[in-house]
Simulated scan of single mutants.
Amino acid sequence: MTRVLVVDDEPQIVRTLRINLKARGYQVDAAPDGRTALDLAARYHPDLVVLDLGLPDLDGVEVIHGLRGWLDVPIIVLSARHSAAEKVTALDAGADDYVTKPFGMDELLARIRAALRRAVPAWAAPVVTTADFTVDLAAKRVTRDGADVRLTPTEWHVLEVLVRNPGRLVSQRQLLREVWGPSYETETNYLRVYMAQLRRKLEPDPPRPRYLITEPGMGYRFAE
């Protein structure tokens, strides 16, 4: 049975999540604050965490850092904080997705299912195949319609980071740091240029991308 840890200090939200998750076969643990969440995670090793950021003792980002020190499972932030900066901070800390309150239960459940599907080591699927192109991570090769797609080293590195995180929102800062280094974390114009180049080479309709998706103000997502 898949185990979900819900971390929220609003009893009504916890109750609603518990009822809906249990009705779909999940086992649910609940924590009203950050320290209890870290303790429950250490004791029960959840398969996924749903985390509010506005906790009474620790900030949710601190909890993410605490979990990411040893736990490699999906973390979905569920928060009333709407600003792009706060979303980016949570994603950079290690969250896999971000849902704002008020939220639709069906959407949240879909995101939980998607996050659990993605929780497979990247090395388990070294070849990623879409309807329009194939990415061989081991061979560092991209093919489209049976022919190799010529990518520059930087284009490849951007694509590789996204493909290794399928469906997951990769923040602008994380992408810049991984491809160019820590001193380039504010150079968002780099990403616009290279994403445009990748879309021209890979997308069937570059102005309306199907695979290399922009999340305005936050980052990018690879949709299989």
Rank of each mutant, 00 (worst) to 15 (best):
M1Q: 13
V4C: 08
L5V: 05
D9F: 05
E10W: 06
Q12L: 14
G25F: 02
L40Y: 10
L40Q: 14
A41G: 09
R43W: 06
H45F: 14
V49T: 10
V50F: 05
V50I: 15
D52V: 09
G54M: 15
G54W: 02
D57Y: 10
L58G: 09
D59L: 08
V61A: 03
H65W: 09
G66A: 12
R68L: 05
L71V: 07
D72H: 14
P74L: 00
I76W: 02
A80N: 12
R81A: 08
R81D: 10
H82Y: 14
H82P: 03
S83Y: 06
A84T: 13
V88W: 07
T89G: 04
T89R: 15
A93D: 05
Y98S: 04
V99E: 02
P102K: 06
P102H: 06
F103I: 12
F103S: 11
M105Q: 11
A110H: 07
A110S: 12
R117Q: 11
W123I: 07
W123H: 11
T129K: 13
T134C: 05
T134Y: 05
V135D: 02
D136I: 00
A139P: 00
R141A: 12
V142M: 07
G146Q: 06
T152H: 01
P153N: 09
E155K: 00
H157E: 14
V163T: 02
N165F: 04
L169F: 03
G181P: 07
S183I: 04
Y184T: 08
E185G: 00
T186M: 06
T186L: 09
Y190H: 11
L191E: 06
V193I: 15
Q197N: 12
P206R: 01
Y211F: 01
Y220H: 07
A223Y: 05
A223F: 00
